[in-house]
Design a protein around this nucleic acid. Structure first.
Lengths: 124, 124
DNA sequence: CGTTAGCTACTTCACGTGTAGTAGATAAGA
DNA sequence: TCTTATCTACTACACGTGAAGTAGCTAACG
């Protein structure tokens, strides 16, 4: 599984959300203030193609239409694994950090607990 | 708050753990298989000095002894914030990912819940 | 006191990443 | 059909990062 850079991940995010999209459509998912130049997005898509994270599915007019090859969750797993490596492979310090910075609410935790129980029920 | 790279963070980790240390001592915290050259660690320490994440406290023989200026938790916060940005600022998808990959146990969640309650008690 | 092991200070280098420009192909509207 | 807007393919470049070499200083040991 390849490692994707921040901007590459944002391009993937657009594709995961839109399903299929042209470079122009991907570019337009960025808020104006932070929108990269058309050719910048193009470069990212091209690099993602080389990494086989993305493929062209068809052509509309003279524009190619792309779709994601790798899934959002597999990419996210990679990101989280990288992060966890920094936290010594244990989740607690990460959780503690999330709590401390106020990002993690009781509801979030309850939700996570539910997910764990469900997962255990499925594959115990 | 500056952004630290992966290797820079590993050097910081050594300093957070050891308190004060020379370049040699920092280098030796790396497992042999992944241990960078002495001068590589030295380079990292210099860069951290420039970023004011680290400072020299004294000299033993001809070797400088360093200590961390920024705290582990502030650095970790920065890392987590960067990660959360990718997850759209919400913790749930991140939690879901942790659960799915089996990194998050029920105990971890219970522990997090305790932390949140404690935090609420302190600054409600 | 001289030699040597270790350390510092500085330099170098390659690769990844973000950023964007340009030339030429193509399509779509006047 | 001619012109213009758009897209592609390729190129360029600067900066951050990981990696390490070298020259010269320093200290410690014989």
């Amino acid at each position: 599984m390849v490692r994707l850079s921040k901007l590459e991940l944002q391009v993937m995010e657009a594709l995961w959300t839109l399903g299929r999209a042209s470079v122009r459509e991907i570019q337009e998912t960025f808020a104006e203030k932070v929108r990269p130049a058309y050719t910048t997005v193009q470069t990212m898509v091209y690099r993602l193609e080389v990494k086989q994270a993305v493929r062209r599915v068809k052509k509309i007019g003279n524009a190619h239409v792309f779709e994601a090859v790798i899934s959002r969750s597999s990419a996210q797993r990679r990101v989280v694994d990288d992060l966890l490596a920094f936290f010594g492979g244990r989740s607690q310090p990460l959780m503690a950090q999330l709590v401390e910075s106020g990002h993690l609410t009781l509801d979030d935790v309850k939700e996570a607990e539910k997910l764990i129980r469900r997962q255990k029920a499925v594959k115990p």
